[in-house]
Design a protein around this nucleic acid. Sequence first.
DNA 1: CACTTGACCTGTCCGC
DNA 2: TGCGGACAGGTCAAGT
Length: 292
Amino acid sequence: MPELPEVETIKLGLEKLLIGKIIIKVIVSDNSLKSFPNNQFDVNKFMLNARIVALRRRAKILIIELSTAYSLVIHLKMTGQLVFVDGKYRFGAGHPNDSLVNRLPDNSTRISIKFKDEGVLYFNDQRKFGWIKLLPTTILNDKDFFRHHGPEPLQKNFTSYVFKNRLLKHKNTMLKAALLNQSIIAGIGNIYADESLWLAKLHPKSVISNLNDKDFVRLHRAILEVLNLSLRAGGSTDKNYVDAYGNKGNYLKFANVFRREGQLCPQCGEPIIKIRVASRGTHICLNCQILK
DNA sequence: CACTTGACCTGTCCGC
DNA sequence: TGCGGACAGGTCAAGT
């Protein structure tokens, strides 16, 4: 389930792979895909012969900017993948036969974008929750477009003071629900919510109005630490996630609680349990994480 | 308005 | 072996 570190990792990969490439063909293999193409006219006029000029990310949304002043705006939701396969090394040395890149397209492929030098970008999405839109780039630069998204946690102006003040606008909300709310802070999903709360020693059902200044500082620091560690590990692969090269992420090797119910808390040795918070599976150490 | 819950999907796993 | 049902979670509409 791509969250900030996963989408950022994909962005960095696509940046190296796609900048300067020219689109020569677009194949839509899933007619139930509602948001793409907007219509065939748009695809022909604004995608064919377009050059990739920039890759951007805002929250969990990826933007592929084209030379036509249009952009592909992509949300991968839970099972979306964006994988580039280069025709030149697809069957080359160093690529095991069972590698994902050798199996594409597969039955989850929704869109294939072919480039002038024979490379193909595949948009796969097993559960069909993801979407791609083709929109004028000027719309994306309008602040209004992302008005429902909170600040980027890894930007310098996202201080613990800013974080605290945004949280305090939702006094009666459970902490985990607030972390998952993209309008309070952008980019956190189920994995990094659980990991940050464990690191900050806060119970996910804690009510925001009960937190003190030290709690906000600790939680802010924990979020930055967890996201940065995941970025260094190339994100988390629970089931579906792969980066732009088709490689899995390594963060879950370092995870302390996520998907570790029944195992022992690295801090205190008590067993980690799984509960439901905000309609989501939630992994906690009852001993370490204080309910406030 | 503040906050919570259910629907959207499909592959996988578990119990019978 | 197969079948039904629960489960996985990002987002938003609908509900309290």
